[in-house]
Nucleic acid binder design. Structure first.
Lengths: 228, 228
DNA sequence: TTGCGCTTTACACAACCTTTACACCGTTCT
DNA sequence: AGAACGGTGTAAAGGTTGTGTAAAGCGCAA
C-alpha cells in the first residue's frame, strides 16, 4: 500500500509535529504551509492522500478542496476547528473523505488515514480505470500514459498496450502469442517480428541498459522483472 | 449512496449468479427475465441503475433502452456479446451509460456500476450552470463563453462545446468518437474531418504555439493536459 | 446579397507499424 | 568440436494511416 501524504497546515509547530509522527509511522510526507503551495505540490507531485487544514493564510481550505475536486478524486482529510459543524458539513458536500477536529490526536489521525487508504485501495482494485503502480512505473489508464519516476514516458499507442500488459503480469512470463493477442489484437504469425520491434523500442525508452527491465524468456515470451 | 439495481437478463443461471453477487456487495437487486417485465418493473419500482442484457426473448434490449430513455435518465449498463461493435455503438447512441462484454467478470461489473453511481451522484451535486475554472481558463455556461486570463475567447458555438468537453475531462484522453458525440451531437463518420478543423481553430485561438494546450493522442483523440 | 460559421476537399507531412536484413546467440545434431 | 538451425536484437527501409491546415463549398440568417 502506498502512503505518500501531502500535509497542508500553516501552523509551523503543529505541521512539524505531525510530519515527524507520520514519517515515523511509515508515511512519506510532503509539506505545504499555505493553500497555493498545497495546490501546486498536489499538481506536481503524485501523492496518495491529502491532510488539509481549513484555516489557511491565503486560500480557504474548502476552496483548496474544491479546486482539487475539480480535477481528481484524491482522498482528502480536513482538519477542522473542534465543534465547527458548518465547516464539517460544507467539507463533506464539497467531497472531503473525512474530517478530524483540531487539536488532533496523532494516533487517531493515522488510524483514519489508514482506514481511508484501505478503502481506496479496495476501490482501485476493482476499477479498470484506476491508476496502477509498479515500482518506479505508474500506469494512468485515463491519460493513456505511463510514468517513470513521475516523468511521462513518450510511448506510442502500441507500446503503451504492450508495456501495460507486461506490467499487469509483472514478474511472470507472458507468452508471445498472448502478448500479441492482448496488446496488438491479432494472432502471432510465423515470421512476424513486429512484437520484437516494439519490445526493442520499449527497452530503449525505459533505459536501464545495464539490466534490462524487460527480460527475454527464450522460446516463450517476455517478462517484466518485478520487485517481488 | 443509493444502490438499487434492476437486473434484466433472460439466462436464469447467469441472472441468479449476478443477483447473488450484487446482493452480497450491498446492492438491492430486482430481477426481470425479459424486456416486458423489465419495463414494467422499472415503471413500478424506483431503482437507481439498470443492468440490461441486449439479447432478450421478447423485446430487444436496445428497444427496452429506447423506451426507458423516452421517460427517464435512469442510468443503464448494457450487457453485450463480446466484440459486437455494432450493438455497442447503437447502444451508446440510444443513451447507454456503459456497456460490458459478456461473459462478464462480476467484480468488474460492480466496479463499473459504482463508477456510474458515483458519477451520477457527482453530476447531481454539481450545478451545470456553475462557472468552472481550469488554470487560466474559466468556463461560464450561462454566457456560453470561455475566458482566458479573464479575457473572453472569441469562440463559435461549436468551438465552445468542443473546448468545454475537453476541459470537463481535463487530463484524460477524450476519444474522437466521444468528443464528436458530446460536442457535435452526431456520429463520427469515417472521413469526417470536421472535428480536426475545430481543434485546429481552437488551437489557434488558444495561442501558446510553443506547447499546444490541446494534445493529440494519435489514433485515439485529444486531451487537454491539465496541471495534474 | 453579404457575412458567418460549419463542413468538405485536397495535399503535405509526420507518426509509427511492419518488413527486411543481418548479426548474434543458445541449442541440437553430426 | 564444429556445423546447422532457429529464436532474438536491432538498424534501416517501406508503406500505411492519421493528422494539420489552407482553401473552397455550402447553408443559413440578416
Amino acid at each position: 500500500m502506498q502512503n505518500r501524504i501531502l500535509l497542508v497546515e500553516d501552523d509551523e509547530e503543529l505541521r512539524q509535529l505531525l510530519a515527524r509522527y507520520l514519517t515515523g509511522q511509515g508515511f512519506t510526507v510532503r509539506e505545504a504551509a499555505n493553500g497555493r503551495d498545497g495546490l501546486s505540490l498536489a499538481a506536481e507531485n503524485h501523492c496518495d492522500i491529502v491532510v488539509l487544514d481549513i484555516m489557511l493564510p491565503d486560500i480557504n481550505g474548502l476552496e483548496v478542496l474544491r479546486q482539487l475536486r475539480a480535477q481528481t478524486h484524491l482522498p482528502v482529510v480536513l482538519l477542522t476547528a473542534r465543534g465547527d459543524e458548518t465547516d464539517r458539513i460544507v467539507g463533506f458536500e464539497v467531497g472531503a473523505d473525512d474530517y478530524i477536529p483540531k487539536p488532533c490526536n496523532p494516533r487517531e489521525l493515522v488510524a483514519r488515514l489508514q482506514a481511508i487508504l484501505r478503502r481506496v485501495a479496495w476501490d482501485q482494485a476493482t476499477d479498470v480505470d484506476a491508476s496502477r503502480e509498479y515500482g518506479d512505473l505508474r500506469v494512468e489508464p485515463v491519460q493513456r500514459r505511463i510514468f517513470q519516476n513521475d516523468e511521462p514516458l513518450d510511448l506510442t499507442a502500441t507500446e503503451y498496450e504492450v508495456l501495460q500488459v507486461l506490467l499487469a503480469h509483472i514478474g511472470s512470463v507472458v507468452r508471445k502469442t498472448d502478448l500479441m493477442q492482448w496488446a496488438l489484437g491479432r494472432r502471432l504469425a510465423s515470421h512476424d517480428r513486429t512484437l520484437d520491434m516494439h519490445i526493442s523500442n520499449l527497452r530503449r525508452k525505459l533505459g536501464g541498459d545495464d539490466s534490462p527491465r524487460i527480460e527475454t524468456v527464450r522460446g516463450l515470451g517476455y517478462s517484466f522483472r518485478g520487485g517481488v
